[in-house]
């Protein structure tokens, strides 16, 4: 199937190096310490952060750092076919682990000893790139909860179809069976915290695809920064003196 037309347009009308529209909203869950909704095109994810709070399971308490937990789930209505998935299926366990590790790398856990941070992410609409959308939403929610972090983590996926590197795959492109690289970076430190790839990819092509994903991550980082800055400013000026 032709995923990039001769005119250089993709199935949804984007250019190969174009990202879907981003939208972020902070403060979607009233009772959570921090929360956010993050949209990349039709992919929509909600994240809520609770904590730092007292560790629930006493045996898991660590005296030198915080315990980070993450739970990923997909709403039943998020995909086209309404499937009832068991809660602890392998896919969601794996993604929970990935998100937990990525977020743990950026949270300054040593500042919050004997406490626990819970991150809950749920996919409301799935259209490819849910993993990256979840990480971006979790970053926003953590920043909203006022948890100290080394840097923001942003994530973006890219792939290679018809020998063209494509940024931010949607569901159709994702399920085409081509390589799919999900990258998570710390934008100001220029460090990679997450790199996942399905399928095979020639080494020379990988460089291009990876570079493209990093560019995407940086663009997302800029957007997230803007949203956070605006939010902080608003909170401060509303509070008054």
């Amino acid at each position: 199937m032709e995923y990039v037309s001769p005119e250089g347009l993709r199935l949804d009308g984007r250019r190969p190096t174009e990202m879907r529209q981003l939208r972020a909203e902070i403060g979607a869950v009233a009772k959570a310490d921090g929360s956010a909704v993050f949209e990349m095109g039709n992919t929509k994810v909600i994240a809520a952060v609770y904590g730092p709070r007292e560790v629930q399971n006493w045996s898991q308490q660590m005296s030198d750092q915080a315990l980070v937990r993450c739970e990923y789930s997909m709403a039943n209505f998020s995909t086209g076919d309404r499937m009832r998935k068991p809660k602890g299926d392998r896919r969601s366990t794996e993604i929970s682990l990935v998100i937990r590790q990525t977020m743990e790398a950026c949270i300054l856990t040593h500042l919050l000893p004997r406490s626990q941070i819970d991150i809950f992410v749920q996919v409301l609409q799935a259209d490819g790139g849910t993993r990256s959308a979840c990480i971006n939403a979790a970053t926003l929610a953590l920043a909203d909860a006022g948890i100290p972090m080394r840097d923001l983590v942003t994530s973006c996926s890219s792939g290679c179809l018809n020998r063209t590197p494509l940024l931010d795959l949607n569901y159709v492109e994702d399920s085409a069976g081509g390589p799919d690289v999900t990258v998570g970076i710390l934008p100001t430190l220029d460090k990679v915290t997450l790199l996942q790839m399905d399928a095979k990819l020639p080494t020379d092509a990988f460089e291009d695809v990876m570079q493209l994903a990093i560019e995407g991550c940086k663009a997302i980082a800029n957007y997230i920064k803007e949203v956070l800055q605006e939010n902080t400013k608003q909170l401060e000026c509303r509070r008054g003196l």
């Binding site: 972090m149 840097d151 100001t188 920064k225 800055q229 401060e236 003196l241």
Partner: peptide, 11 residues
């Protein structure tokens, strides 16, 4: 009263 003193993570 306070211009541009708001910062975000990693600023």
């Amino acid at each position: 009263s306070n211009p541009n003193s708001c910062v975000t993570v990693a600023d």
